[in-house]
């Protein structure tokens, strides 16, 4: 692979980081039931911050929209009002919401604690690979019995 893209985008400001952390915490919250951290967990959130290079501009725009919907700063609202504001954001700004959803999911679903909770080995696919069942090839007998279905074009 050739060189990676230049990291020309500026990092998020402290204020943007707080808003983003609040947003991803609402999106994927901590769960006692499933024994998993939220996406605002310090380790996961640090991973998110390090991974949004290509989405920096879109994330910034999304955070500005969210604060505008909050008529101030999202983080200053009580939690139920934050949730209502984010529902409006998700319903009204699908493209921007998708950017944050993708950024959060890309990091959340590789955290070892989360992997363990969904019964997935925390390892790369290579070099061990996976097993896949061959399946029952006799299922093709009716397809064979039907005969050819293509048009000859000579």
């Amino acid at each position: 692979m050739t060189k990676s893209k230049d990291k020309s985008s500026a990092e998020l400001s402290p204020s943007e980081r707080k808003t983003l952390r609040c947003v991803v915490g609402h999106m994927i919250p901590l769960s006692q039931e499933f024994g998993v951290p939220g996406a605002d967990n310090p380790e996961i959130f640090a991973d998110i911050l390090q991974s949004i290079d290509r989405d920096r501009d879109a994330v910034g725009e999304a955070l500005r929209v969210i604060d505008a919907l909050a008529q101030g700063r999202l983080i200053d609202l009580p939690r139920p009002e934050q949730a209502r504001c984010l529902l409006d954001f998700r319903n009204g700004y699908r493209a921007l919401a998708s950017v944050i959803e993708s950024a959060a999911a890309r990091c959340y679903y590789r955290d070892e604690r989360v992997m363990a909770s969904i019964n997935m080995e925390a390892r790369p696919p290579f070099p061990k690979g996976y097993a896949v069942e061959q399946g029952d090839w006799s299922l093709l007998d009716p397809v064979r019995a039907r005969g050819r279905i293509f048009r000859d074009a000579n």
Binding site: S51, R106, R110, P125
Partner: peptide, 15 residues
């Protein structure tokens, strides 16, 4: 290639 790392899925949406 992405499949050699833990971030295999994320990289299919990045580099």
């Amino acid at each position: 290639f992405p499949s050699t790392g833990r971030d295999w899925e994320a990289r299919t949406l990045e580099d």
